[in-house]
Nucleic acid binder design. Structure first.
Length: 346
DNA sequence: AATAAGTGCAACCGCGCCCCT
DNA sequence: TAGGGGCGCGGTTGCACTTAT
C-alpha cells in the first residue's frame, strides 16, 4: 500500500504559477507566515495548490533576497569545491551561497557547470571516478581530471572556501582543540599545499575521511560531543527558506558548529584514515586521545575501505557494550543506510 | 521562414526522516 | 513504541525559449 497523497490531486492546480497566485501566496506568508504547516496553507491563502507546491514556489522564487541570474566565478568555485567534497547535497551547498536556492544550483550544475568542467577536463582518464556515497551518481570524470579542473581554474588557492564559509574541512569545533597527535610532523593540512591536492581530494571523496566533531545541539551540552563518520547530511530551512541547520543522521547540527579536517601525510600511501576519539573520557576523566588507530588504504578504495571500517566500528560497538562506561559512549550504526553513517557520542 | 535540436529552468514527484500522538 | 502526517531533499519531467540547419 502506497502512502496517502499529501493533497487532493484532482482539485489542485498544477503547472506554472500565475502572477495572481504569486501575490496571494506572498501576501499571505508576509502577513501570517507559514504557520509551520504548508499543507494547510494553500486553503487558508485561497490557493488551489498543493502545499508542497506552495512551499517550493516560496522557497525558490518568492521569498525575499532570492538571487537570480548569472553565477559568478566565485560561486562556481564554491559549488565545485563543495560538490567534490560532499557531492550533490544541494541544500548544503546552497547554504553557502546567499540568495541561491538548492534548485537553482542543482539546475546550474546539471545544465552548465558540469559541462563547463567537462569541457576543460583533460581527455586522459585515469581510474574512473565515482562519488563515495550511494546517493552520488557515478561521473565519467576521473579523479585526476576532476582535480585538474581545480588546478586549471583561476582559483589561486585550493580548496577554496568563501570568507563566511565555516568549512567542513578546515576547522574543528572551537570547543574541540585539534588533537596534537594529528598535528605531528608529516601531517599537513592540505589547503596550503598544492602538491597535495590530489591526495587531499581523494581523501575528501571518501566519506570515511570526514569526521565531524560537533556539539550535540539536542541538549546544547558542550561536553556531549559527537564524531560523525560518513556523509549523510541534510539541511533544513527556516521559514524564510534560508538554510540554517544541517542534520546528520537525524540530529540537527548548527552549521556554525560543524567542522571536519582532512589531514594527510606527506607519504603517498599513508594518509587515508584517521579514526580516533579524543577529549576527556567522561567516565574516568582520563585523556582518551587516539583511542582508535590510523589505517592505511590505497587511493581508490581497492580494498573496499568502507567495509573495512565498518568492521572497526562494529568492533567498537561490541567493545563499547562491554564497557562499563557505555552510558557515555553510544554508537549508532545504521546499516540500512548502506553503512553510510556512523556516530560516536562521547 | 520553417522546423528540428538543444538548452534552461520552474515545477513535480517519490522517498526518507522527524515529530507528534 | 508504533504509526501517521508533514517537511525537506534530490532526481526527474515538461515546456518555453533559443539556436542551428
Amino acid at each position: 500500500m502506497g502512502r496517502a497523497p499529501c493533497c487532493d490531486k484532482a482539485n489542485v492546480k498544477k503547472g506554472p504559477w500565475s502572477p495572481e497566485e504569486d501575490s496571494k501566496l506572498k501576501e499571505y506568508i508576509e502577513k501570517f507566515g507559514t504557520g509551520g504547516n504548508w499543507i494547510a496553507l494553500p486553503q487558508k491563502a485561497g490557493l488551489k495548490r498543493c502545499g508542497k507546491s506552495c512551499r517550493l514556489r516560496w522557497l525558490n522564487y518568492l521569498r525575499p533576497n532570492i538571487k537570480h541570474g548569472e553565477f559568478s566565478d566565485e560561486e562556481d568555485r564554491i559549488i565545485c569545491t563543495l560538490f567534490a567534497n560532499i557531492g550533490s547535497r544541494w541544500s548544503i551547498i546552497a547554504a553557502q551561497l546567499p540568495g541561491r536556492t538548492d534548485n537553482d544550483i542543482k539546475n546550474y550544475w546539471n545544465t552548465k557547470l558540469k559541462k563547463k568542467l567537462m569541457a576543460v577536463a583533460p581527455q586522459s582518464q585515469t581510474k574512473p571516478f565515482s562519488f563515495p556515497s550511494p546517493h552520488h551518481q557515478s561521473s565519467p570524470l576521473s579523479s585526476h581530471s576532476l582535480l585538474s579542473l581545480y588546478k586549471d581554474s583561476s582559483s589561486s588557492s585550493f580548496p577554496y572556501f568563501p570568507p563566511n564559509f565555516k568549512p567542513f574541512t578546515t576547522v574543528f569545533d572551537p570547543i574541540s582543540p585539534i588533537p596534537s597527535n594529528l598535528l605531528a610532523k608529516n601531517t599537513t593540512t592540505t589547503a596550503t599545499n598544492s602538491s597535495s591536492l590530489f591526495q587531499t581530494q581523494e581523501s575528501l571523496l571518501n566519506p570515511l575521511h570526514y569526521y565531524h566533531p560537533v556539539k550535540d545541539s539536542n541538549n546544547g551540552s558542550s561536553s556531549n560531543n559527537l564524531l560523525i563518520f560518513g556523509s549523510e547530511a541534510s539541511c533544513s530551512s527556516n521559514s524564510d527558506g534560508s538554510c540554517s541547520q544541517i542534520s546528520y543522521g537525524g540530529r540537527e547540527i548548527k552549521q556554525e558548529d560543524m567542522g571536519f579536517q582532512s589531514y594527510i601525510s606527506n607519504g603517498y600511501e599513508e594518509n587515508q584514515k584517521f579514526m580516533f576519539s579524543y577529549g576527556i573520557n567522561s567516565c574516568n576523566g582520563s585523556e582518551n586521545l587516539n583511542q582508535w588507530t590510523e589505517k592505511t588504504t590505497g587511493y581508490f578504495g581497492e580494498t573496499s575501505p568502507f567495509e573495512y571500517d565498518l568492521e572497526d566500528v562494529k568492533q567498537l560497538i561490541s567493545s563499547s557494550s562491554n564497557n562499563s562506561c557505555n552510558n557515555n559512549n553510544n554508537i549508532l550504526l545504521d546499516e540500512n543506510k548502506t553503512q553510510e553513517k556512523y556516530m560516536y557520542y562521547y
